Simulated scan of single mutants.
Amino acid sequence: MMGMWFYQEVILQPTEDIAISFLWTKVYRQIHLALVNSKDEQGVIRCGVAFPEYSDVQPTLGRTLRLLAPEESDLQRLNLADALKHLAPDYVKIKTVRPVPIRACKGFVMYSRYQPEATAARKARRYAQRHSMSIEEAQKIFPSAANKTRYPYIQLESMTNHHRFSLFIQKQEAVEHPCEGFSAYGFSRRSSVPDF
Rank of each mutant, 00 (worst) to 15 (best):
Lys39Asp: 02
Glu136Thr: 13
Leu167Lys: 03
Phe168Gln: 11
Ser191Lys: 07
Phe168Ser: 07
Phe108Val: 01
Val44Cys: 03
Ala184Met: 05
Ser21Val: 12
Glu173Gly: 10
Ala124Lys: 15
Tyr151Asn: 07
Pro152Gln: 04
Arg66Met: 08
Gln129Asp: 15
Ser21Tyr: 13
Leu167Ser: 09
Gln58Phe: 11
Gly48Phe: 04
Pro178Met: 03
Met2Glu: 10
Thr15Lys: 13
Lys106Trp: 11
Trp5Glu: 02
Leu23Asn: 07
Asp17Val: 10
Arg189Met: 13
Gln30Ser: 13
Glu9Asn: 07
Val49Ile: 09
Val49Arg: 00
Trp5Lys: 03
Lys148Arg: 15
Tyr153His: 10
Tyr54Trp: 11
Val10Trp: 01
Asp195Ala: 03
Phe165Ile: 08
Phe51Ala: 00
Tyr28Arg: 02
Glu173Ile: 12
Thr119Ala: 14
Lys85Leu: 07
Glu180Val: 09
Asp56Asn: 13
Val36Leu: 09
Val57Glu: 11
Ala34Ser: 05
Ser183Phe: 03
Asn161Ala: 09
Gln42Gly: 01
Leu65Ala: 02
Pro152Tyr: 07
Ser132Lys: 15
Ser73Ile: 10
His32Pro: 01
Gly186Arg: 05
Lys140Asp: 15
Arg29Ser: 13
Asp56Gln: 09
Gln115Gly: 15
Ser191Trp: 09
Pro178Asp: 06
Ser112Asp: 07
Gly48Ile: 02
Glu53Cys: 06
Glu41Asn: 13
Gln30Val: 02
Pro194Gln: 12
Leu78Gly: 04
Gly107Gln: 11
Trp5Pro: 00
Leu87Val: 12
Asp82Thr: 06
Asp90Ile: 12
Val92Cys: 11
Gly186Thr: 00
Ala81Arg: 14
Gly3Gln: 14
Glu9Lys: 10
Gln30Met: 07
Lys93Glu: 12
